[in-house]
Structure formats: C-alpha cells, structure tokens
C-alpha cells in the first residue's frame, strides 16, 4: 500500500482565502525519500503544514491518504500518533518544559495509541541515550527547556532527535537545512540518513540543492505556484542548481504535471 497518496490537493489560507496549493499530486511509497524543491512562496511549507494539520489553512479540493486513511480528516495529534512527523522549519521554544520530559510524554502518547506498553523512566532514558548519539546531542541540551536558547543547529538536531525517538512512518522535513552551517547540516543529515530503513518514507523540503548532497533522494519534485511542475531523480536537483528556478517556471505546467505523476507513482 502507498504510504502517502496526495491527489489534486488545493488549500487556501483561512484568514484571507488566498489559494496556495493549486492541485498537488504526489505519492510516496514505503522506504522512499522524496525531495520537494521550489522557489520561495511556491507552497512548500504550506504543503508541510497542511499535511501535519496546522490550523490556519482550508483544504478546498482533493485529498491525502495516509496508509489508505483520510489524513486530512484527522486532528493534528492523531496524525502524529498514526506516524506522521513534521520536522519544523522554525522549532518552537517552550520555556519550562524539559526536553526529556516532553519527549517522554510524546513517546508514551504515541506508544499508547499504537497499543504498545508505555516506557518507564529507565527504558525511556536508554532509548533517548541511544538516539541522542545519532545527532550528537549533548546531555545538557536534553535537560534544558525545549529549544530554549538553542542555536539554530541545536534546534534542528533536536527535531531529528524527536523524529528518531518517535519512530514515524512518514517524516516531513521542512527546510531542515535553513540557517545551518555546513557542519551542523552534516550532523542533521547523518541523523536523518540513519533513519532511512527501507520502510520509513520521507518528504524532504528544501530550497537549495545543498542538503541533497547529504540526503540523497530517490525522487525530486519541483513546486511552482502551488503545483508540482517537474519531477525526476536526484539529477533534477543538480540541474536546478545550475539553471535556477526560472528555468522551470518558463515551462508550461500541464505537460510536466503529467510526467510528475508518472514518475512518482
């Protein structure tokens, strides 16, 4: 079964009705890593938000199925419990809530939903210790308030750590590379790569090709003005980097859209 199947998805900003997504078609199978690229304002983050259930958007047409279930009908927390994870572009600081306490609460909420036993403190700390190594996360950061006073790199590593601990079936990484220097990028990317296990699907959203040097995608899609206008393999990203987004925007969308569907499914 397909992990994620998005068809003809249209979504608008709730507040003013501006349409951002204008008919997205995208299918992700288990184990596949899809990169979604596109210029600023093309709708990349909006797609991530709509898939994760962030308030403030209205889906006007189309649908998204997650393991055959209607994803868009689920509240955000149910999507998370079912196995959809969003790594935030701008992780939120939560003063007063320790990273460890937050993670354990989240893990046990998800485990309970999946019919697994909740982890006690000792088992949880063992799991956390193991996963923290993946992203080279210092213990001090685990005991601090969630993201509070973290550097850009620490925040993104914390997102990858949460992903590792929550063990989602589909991970959506929203511009995980933004604001990172090359060392921080490498650490975050190697954490993500460690979580590629042949079953987990990933949607890697990025503006630049740079991240894709580290997380090698199976498929690359280009989003422009709310539609996927071109799809290909990892070489498409390199071509984009060389030619710029204007190259894509000049092509008529209808033909490329058909190609995208063919490659992605």
């Amino acid at each position: 079964m397909n992990l994620l199947e998005i068809s003809n998805l249209h979504a608008s900003i709730e507040e003013d009705g501006t349409e951002i997504l204008k008919g997205i078609d995208l299918t992700i199978c288990p184990g596949e890593v899809h990169a979604l690229m596109g210029p600023n304002g093309s709708g990349k983050s909006t797609l991530a938000h709509v898939l994760s259930g962030r308030p403030g958007y209205v889906v006007t047409q189309g649908r998204a199925l997650f393991q055959g279930k209607d994803l868009l009908a689920m509240p955000a927390e149910i999507r998370a419990r079912e196995g959809v994870f969003l790594a935030f572009q701008y992780p939120v600081e939560i003063p007063g809530v320790s990273n460890t306490y937050f993670l354990r609460t989240a893990v046990n909420t998800v485990r309970k939903h999946r019919g697994q036993l909740e982890l006690d403190a000792i088992d949880f700390l063992a799991l956390l210790d193991e996963k923290a190594k993946l992203v080279e996360m210092e213990e001090a950061l685990l005991n601090r308030s969630v993201n509070e006073g973290f550097s850009g790199g620490e925040k993104k590593r914390n997102e990858v750590l949460q992903m590792a601990v929550l063990d989602p079936k589909l991970a959506i990484l929203d511009e995980t590379d933004s604001g990172l220097d090359i060392d921080a990028l490498r650490v975050a990317a190697s954490g993500v790569n460690a979580l590629r296990d042949g079953a987990r699907g990933m949607l890697v959203i990025t503006h630049y090709q740079r991240l894709l040097d580290y997380i090698i995608p199976d498929f690359v899609h280009v989003l422009s003005d709310g539609r996927i206008v071109k799809s290909g393999d990892k070489n498409l990203a390199k071509e984009l980097e060389a030619k710029g987004y204007s190259w894509i925007e000049k092509e008529p969308p209808a033909t490329v859209s058909a190609a995208a569907g063919a490659i992605a499914s």
Binding site: G53, E77, A80, P91, V97, F102, T105, A106, Q162, L166
Partner: peptide, 19 residues
C-alpha cells in the same frame, strides 16, 4: 508544536500552563 508530537490539545495546554 506539542500536538504535532502527539499530545492532545488538552494535554498540550495543561503542559504549557504548568510550565
């Protein structure tokens, strides 16, 4: 943010209020 990690809206609000 807390809901996106699986917490119910009630649990998220309680945790933030507690914090």
């Amino acid at each position: 943010y807390l809901r996106s990690r699986g917490l119910s809206p009630e649990a998220a609000r309680a945790l933030l209020t507690y914090a």
